[in-house]
Simulated assay, not measured.
Amino acid sequence: MSQDTLWLVADDHPLFRQAIMESLKPAFTEVTWLEAETSDQLEQQLQANDEIELLLLDLKIPGAHGFSTLIHVRSHFPEIPVVVVSAFEDRDTIQKAIQSGASGFIPKSLPATGMVEAVQHVLNGGVWVPDADITAAADDSSEIAERVASLTPQQYRILMMFAEGLLNKQIAPELGVSEATVKAHATAIFKKLGVTNRTQAVIALGQLELDKDQTHFEG
């Protein structure tokens, strides 16, 4: 492993980011660490650093909607293995993460030795989950996942803004484009998602959300 090896940890909690890095540093001593607190920062880091070799991703990072960020990253940065690190530990969430392209799923309750083992397994080309019986069985969200994966980075960002309830006139200055450009992107988004308006687009995106019954967890 060279001194130039870059790993990125994306989690909105500084203490969790620090804990992840401190757990892995003794075993992976030649890694340079990058950090992101939000989905926007994650995208900026990925765009600015084409030598990133591993992403450790929190599913609940601000700006994400369930598995949408994972799907987006795997679609646009397929060469980067993604290991989900989450407080969500149920079988369904783990299955959907692997189905959405994750190379591993590490519960935040896993001890440091287990985390090192999991990351090494992924680096060796394997897929690591905490329960060997868990498989990536397809479900009803698989089709919408493929459609979201087909969005360009700009289209994906606009869809996330739709989900936040922003209007075209609010999105345009945020992105530095005209309202007409936002409308053109919206039309393309609707076509790719197989919907006719932004409400339907947000509803479709909702299929990728985490289990609503578990939202009390910080994951």
Results as ranks from 00 to 15, higher is better:
N124M: 08
V148H: 00
P153V: 07
L159S: 03
M115G: 00
P130F: 10
A138L: 10
V127Y: 02
M115Y: 06
D133C: 06
G126F: 00
N124Y: 05
I106A: 09
I144V: 15
G126L: 05
V122Y: 01
A137P: 03
T113Q: 14
Y156A: 06
A112D: 15
M115L: 09
G101T: 01
S109G: 08
D139W: 07
S109H: 12
P130N: 09
A137F: 02
F105K: 02
D140G: 15
S109P: 00
I94M: 10
V129E: 02
H121Q: 10
A149Q: 06
S142W: 04
I144A: 03
P130S: 13
E143Q: 12
I144N: 05
I94K: 00
A138P: 01
E146T: 10
D131L: 08
V122N: 02
A132H: 14
S150E: 14
I106E: 04
P111R: 12
A102F: 01
S141E: 07
A136M: 10
S142K: 05
D133P: 01
D131E: 12
I158G: 03
A132Y: 07
A97R: 00
P111E: 13
R157V: 05
K96C: 05
A102H: 02
I94T: 06
D92E: 15
A118I: 05
D131A: 06
T135F: 11
G101I: 01
S141T: 14
G114K: 05
I158A: 03
A145H: 01
Q154V: 12
A149V: 08
T113Y: 13
D90T: 02
T135K: 13
Q99H: 09
G104M: 06
V129M: 09
R91C: 12
S103W: 03
S103R: 11
D133K: 14
M115H: 04
I134W: 08
T93C: 11
F105N: 02
S103D: 08
E117P: 02
E146W: 05
D133F: 03
L110D: 09
G114S: 11
E117C: 04
I134G: 05
I158K: 02
T152N: 08
A132E: 15
K96M: 07
G114E: 08
Q95E: 11
I106R: 04
V129A: 07
E143V: 10
Q154A: 14
M115D: 01
P130D: 12
P130M: 14
T152D: 10
I144Y: 00
L151D: 04
G101S: 07
G126A: 10
R91I: 09
E143H: 09
G101F: 01
Q120L: 06
P153C: 08
D90A: 06
L123R: 09
D139N: 13
A112Q: 09
A118G: 06
E117A: 10
P107D: 11
P111G: 15
G114T: 10
A137S: 14
R157F: 06
Q154D: 11
T113R: 15
K108L: 10
V129R: 00
I144Q: 01
D140K: 12
D131C: 09
F105M: 10
S103I: 00
